[in-house]
Design a protein around this nucleic acid. Structure first.
Lengths: 340, 340
DNA sequence: AGAGTTTGAGTTAACGATAACTCAAAATTT
DNA sequence: AAATTTTGAGTTATCGTTAACTCAAACTCT
């Protein structure tokens, strides 16, 4: 309402026709004489008319806006997902409206309701998200909703996610094949299902290799700061690791900082592997070995699922899982020989 | 329209009242008996009713959504601005809907129109943005719009911006006071007005000190990769700089990488100063001396201006300029003595 | 007890856009 | 020239919500 002022009525008056005629001209529907069409278009241009989206939406027309909810804006991973989704949506003529997850589950539910109630044509939700009962509501509403990286409570909503287990396994095996035996791990945030997967793979691999040592695991939270601290802790152990696998790239950068602070060279004295393959991983020096999610493909798949749902096709229970992939760069190398 | 299905009508039927009564209950307007109120609330809860935002907006009610347009999502600077704005908006009961600038100015104009036409109650635009005629349209529409970091064509729209000149001046003077005489500069992206300000300050300061040398300036684009390349170029000069001022923190990180690649220590052999004071600046090792914009205060000011405009107060021609501030950390130190 | 007041609903109309329908005038056919 | 079709508009009704109004029943006062 603020002051979108100019309505069909105004344009109609200026062009000397009825407002329905204006609507027809602007939507290319119905029969309109060339003369009238010109007059109307000119009037619309002159007044700077832009259709009121609320009215249009109320009448059942799509807004061409795709909503997306992500936990936060700062993390490069989510930023990349958002950007990829915005690109994919844009290619299909949609604008992506980005929201961050609300801390208050009740407000979150209302907001999602508000979005689907005329503001957006659909929603892509990157979990973690609150209550599961909320997901049931969404299912019931039959609105076009797609979840990304959902691992938790079962739902019939379509899900796109990346398998972090295989990639993490590959990372640890890569380090083992380089001759490392003491391999440290810095975990991700406590309640992240992605973080849990990464840890599970590390543990499985180390146990299988008979190298498991709980002292080599330090809690992290995906941040660089914690990576630095955890790195210092690990490198101060009596029998320190020669390689460290971190649950995120930022954490890995923190570990590298810690190594430098200890006077160690990467990768000569310490190999470091991260997770996420954020852009900085390739540009950093040394470049960072990391596990990559195919973010572009995931975002594209999510947008495609949204379009399918919107077109009336059923996407119930669809699960698209992408593999993660180890990208070997300069931060990982052969294990140093301790006693030459 | 997707399927927000449940309308006032449905709730009304279930509660055995008219839909207006339901509206009154949910909006706490009019006189309603305690008994009816309870029945209605229960019915609404049971059906999971959420008001249709489009209809509400059409009727003149605010959507409680504040739109924000930023050039891109990946840059930590914009991500911080968006986060700060989301926080500030949230404190006032608004949700922030984030959009990235469209490459197509025509589509951009339409989208902004669509946003103000019922989707959002106002808009915060972080320039760069397209055509200036477009800004004139916005002015005319009298919609609550606030610009952040606008330096270009004159407008009567309220503007919040940070002065980058003073902070850049302080950065160069800081390096001069540490004894540096050869101070390099890596510019920001070509068409950014912020980048121009930073360069202007560097130039002014160096000319004033009689130390100007065009060879010490290398073009950048705010990225780490270009920082690395430009850093290598500068450090390969016959008479290389002992300090480098970079137009962004990412660029500064690239410069530090370049120094390391050349076997130089920071800050012992090379001092580096960045711009933006992104979170990583404080966490990196060495921590990065950088020029900071008061992003939180800027975002808060922008949201406040929006609220003022929305409340009907005039904000025409308001310009709020914040100072930038030099944050001295570990990456800058005394100039090395070249010939002991 | 009659007049006025309060209570707790319901009715109507409007926001702006558009699908479905109507209808006179012009163009075409027979 | 009469009958039919086509053209180019305009009318009406509707989406879901809510402000403004209406109105009967219950309650209060003298």
């Amino acid at each position: 309402m603020p002051d979108s002022n100019v309505t069909l009525e105004h344009v109609a008056r200026l062009a000397g026709v009825s407002k329905v005629t204006v609507s027809k001209v602007l939507n290319n529907t119905g029969r309109i004489s060339e003369d009238t069409r010109k007059r109307v278009l000119e009037a619309a241009r002159q007044l700077g008319y832009v259709a009121n989206t609320a009215a249009r939406s109320l009448r059942g027309r799509p807004t061409q806006i795709l909503g997306m909810v992500i936990p936060e804006l700062i993390s490069p991973y989510f930023a990349e997902v958002a950007r990829a989704a915005a690109d994919a949506a844009s290619r299909q003529g949609y604008d992506l409206a980005l929201f961050t997850t609300s801390r208050d589950p009740k407000r979150e539910r209302e907001r999602v309701g508000a979005l689907l109630g005329g503001l957006a044509d659909g929603l892509i939700i990157v979990v973690p998200i609150g209550a599961a009962g909320f997901l049931a509501d969404l299912e019931r509403s039959r609105a076009p909703v797609v979840l990304i990286n959902h691992f938790g409570a079962s739902t019939h909503l379509p899900v796109v996610r990346a398998d972090s287990f295989q990639g993490s396994l590959a990372a640890v095996e890569h380090l083992l094949s380089l001759g490392h035996r003491r391999i440290g791990f810095v975990t991700g945030a406590a309640h992240s299902s992605q973080a849990a997967e990464r840890y599970r793979a590390y543990q499985a691999c180390m146990v299988a290799a008979g190298l498991w040592d709980e002292a080599l695991v330090r809690p992290g939270d995906f941040t660089q700061r914690r990576g630095f601290e955890a790195g210092l802790e690990l490198l101060s152990l009596p029998d320190p690791p020669t390689a460290i696998f971190a649950a995120s790239d930022l954490t890995a950068f923190g570990v590298i900082d810690a190594a430098r602070a200890k006077g160690l060279r990467v990768p000569e004295d310490l190999s470091v592997v991260g997770f996420d393959d954020i852009p900085a991983a390739a540009h950093a020096h040394p470049s960072l070995t990391s596990v990559a999610h195919p973010i572009q493909a995931m975002a594209q798949a999510a947008v495609d699922l949204f379009l399918k749902a919107r077109a009336g096709q059923t996407v119930r229970d669809t699960l698209i899982e992408f593999p993660s992939r180890l990208v070997v760069r300069a931060s990982s190398g052969p294990a140093p020989r301790r006693w030459p």
